[in-house]
Amino acid sequence: MTQPVNQRDTAQIARRPRVADEVRDALRRLLLERELLPGDRLLVSDLAQRFGVSPTPVREALSLLEAEGLVAKRPRQGYVVGDLLDHSTLQSLYAVRLRLEPWAAGQAATHATAEQLDRLDAMCGAPPSPPDALSYHEYAGVQDQDLTFHGLVADASGNVVLGDVLGRLAPKLRQFHAYHQAGATELAWQEHRAIAEAIARGDADAAEAAMTAHLQAALERIRSATVR
């Protein structure tokens, strides 16, 4: 017979994912702020002591970050900070985005709800200021907003499968967030604004063209900042 779970066990089960998420977020900040660099070893015992938690949520956090591509698990070495995507993978990633996202923007121009249009407009309401004086933590927040914007466009297309597919690309894109690109925040805001305005006008062709131009420009910015 299955033994009943007592209240203490239930509380521990409910609390553990939250602690693991907090550790994951703290580790991600260290990566974004470049306190940890590609190839650095990530010892569970050291991290548990650093964050004042048990090893279990640290292991769970590392597993979550591994799924995002930010850390890697190597034989006889354990977890290490992951490498940047290479040129070939970067090109492949953006080849997929350039196929799907312009179409999504065009669809959004004819399918977006009033609420979705309001959310897109709100995300493009004010330019970042000053664009080149952000900390790595603040820059990471800007990049999270970028992913959110693209997710909103995908949702506004009305194609739920598309939104899921594009969402799966987000972890790979996060691998570039530790690299601040001069002027990128303001340029991306201007490009997002052009996309949102075309969608709001219901101009599918302009929305598609604006998204294509944005992705091509983003690819060049990322390549110049990260690919050697």
Rank of each mutant, 00 (worst) to 15 (best):
S88R: 05
A182D: 13
G141A: 04
A95G: 05
Y179H: 15
R74G: 04
D155H: 14
L64G: 08
A170L: 09
S135H: 14
F176N: 09
A108R: 02
E220A: 12
P130E: 04
L93N: 01
P38G: 14
A156C: 03
E22G: 08
Q49G: 13
L84I: 03
G125D: 11
H180G: 10
L27K: 15
N159A: 14
A156H: 12
S88V: 02
R74V: 11
V58I: 04
A196N: 03
L162A: 07
A184H: 09
L70Y: 01
Q175V: 09
Y179E: 13
R16L: 13
T110D: 01
E60G: 01
D164E: 13
Q216N: 08
A67C: 03
A133R: 11
T10E: 10
A61L: 05
I199W: 02
E138K: 10
I222V: 12
R8L: 13
L31D: 11
V96S: 01
G82T: 02
K73A: 07
A178I: 13
P127N: 03
D21Q: 13
Q190F: 04
E186R: 11
A72Y: 04
W189I: 07
A114I: 03
I222C: 05
R99E: 01
A217K: 11
D9G: 15
T2R: 14
A213L: 12
L117N: 12
R223F: 05
R50H: 13
T113G: 02
S129L: 07
L98A: 00
V80Y: 02
L37V: 14
V142N: 02
H192E: 05
T212R: 15
L166A: 00
V142I: 05
G82H: 01
P57L: 10
G163H: 09
D132S: 04
H137I: 02
S157E: 07
R34S: 15
Q12E: 09
D144C: 01
L215Q: 11
A188R: 08
Q143D: 09
A26K: 13
R76M: 01
V5M: 14
G141T: 03
L32T: 14
L43I: 10
A156W: 12
G69V: 11
T113D: 07
G82S: 09
P171Q: 03
A67T: 05
V71S: 04
R50T: 11
V58G: 06
R97C: 00
A61G: 04
Q91N: 05
Q7I: 15
A105H: 00
H180D: 14
A112I: 10
A200N: 01
L219A: 06
R99V: 00
L215N: 04
G39Q: 13
L147P: 00
D21W: 14
V161Q: 08
P127H: 11
A95R: 00
V53G: 09
Q3V: 14
N6L: 12
V161S: 08
N159I: 04
V44L: 10
G106W: 00
P131N: 13
I199Q: 08
P4C: 12
V153D: 10
D205K: 07
